[in-house]
């Protein structure tokens, strides 16, 4: 019974995490503007990886491996939002037209990073 519970938790978390990662990949290639793409990539980096690693944590054989995975989650949740913030800040710094750009019209690549 406990094994089944572990398996179900692991599978559910891994599947939802993979779904979010697939959505993030589609978003990165679908969107045109850098801020939208950054949003998609950051979502995959935080939520998708959180779900995947939680699933692996439930299936880990001993407590130390689970703790290591939790540490990896903490590290990624530290680093990934900061890098997304830096990308957004760089875009705002070097692109003076960033507020005027409608999200889906500019397909020429001009103004995008």
């Amino acid at each position: 019974m406990l094994e089944w519970l572990r398996f179900i938790l692991t599978a559910g978390f891994l599947l939802s995490g993979l779904m979010i990662l697939i959505t993030a990949v589609f978003g990165v290639y679908k969107f045109d503007y850098v801020l939208n793409r950054m949003h998609a990539a950051a979502m995959g980096d935080t939520l998708g990886i959180l779900f995947c690693l939680l699933g692996l944590t439930f299936s880990s054989p001993d407590i130390w491996m689970a703790l290591k995975l939790l540490l990896i989650i903490a590290f990624l949740w530290f680093s990934s939002p900061v890098s997304s913030h830096l990308i957004a800040r760089l875009e705002v710094t070097i692109n003076p037209m960033w507020q005027q750009l409608p999200p889906k019209t500019d397909r020429s690549g001009e103004g995008n990073l």
């Binding site: 900061v82 913030h85 800040r89 760089l90 710094t93 070097i94």
Partner: peptide
């Protein structure tokens, strides 16, 4: 271009 004065980056 340098985000040097960025408080969030510095804190992390």
């Amino acid at each position: 271009y340098e985000p040097r004065s960025d408080r969030i980056l510095q804190g992390s």
